[in-house]
């Protein structure tokens, strides 16, 4: 099978790679580009552990073909912190102990970032519905919701 050449943007950088037709974006990120932040929990769009942002919308990268990234703009967890400075969502996840094993965490962070990008002041209900496609087997979700609320507050304060 001949490879497909893809030019895309990942976390602001121009990236080129070769992939197979049936390879998912998740596999490309992890196996070809060394971006191991996105996790494969299910591979079928059910768990959200592979969440990445594509052209501003949060997607399951396990349900995107690597070839489909051509010309798009992809954001992954690796691009979230600004150098050594954590994103407010990352800091608040640590502060609220919103993670235990951490498998789900990159997905939650990307999904929560996509939420705050479009809705900077979400209600608890907004957060719970928005994150319903991200599964966590450890935390019981409550701490995750609090961390997102707190990060939203802090980001609002920083803008004021």
């Amino acid at each position: 099978m001949s490879s497909i050449a893809v030019s895309t943007t990942i976390n602001g950088d121009d990236v080129e790679y070769l992939c197979q037709a049936d390879e998912t974006l998740l596999d490309v990120l992890r196996n070809r580009l060394g971006l191991m932040g996105a996790k494969e929990g299910c591979g079928t769009g059910d768990c959200g552990a592979c969440s990445t942002i594509m052209d501003g919308r949060v997607v399951c990268s396990c349900l995107v073909l690597g070839a489909e990234a051509e010309g798009r703009s992809i954001e992954t967890i690796e691009g979230m912190a600004n150098g050594n400075e954590l994103h407010p969502l990352q800091s608040k996840f640590i502060e609220h102990a919103a993670l235990q094993c951490g498998i789900c965490t990159p997905g939650f962070l990307m999904a929560a970032k996509a939420l705050l990008d479009v809705k900077p002041d979400p209600t608890e209900k907004d957060i719970r519905f928005w994150l319903a496609g991200n599964l966590c087997r450890c935390t019981g979700y409550d701490k995750i919701v609090r961390a997102v609320q707190d990060a939203a507050q802090e980001m609002k304060g920083a803008r004021a």
Partner: peptide
């Protein structure tokens, strides 16, 4: 239909 992630696609 589906989650936020599914809605995006």
């Amino acid at each position: 239909i589906g989650s936020t992630q599914i809605q995006s696609r």
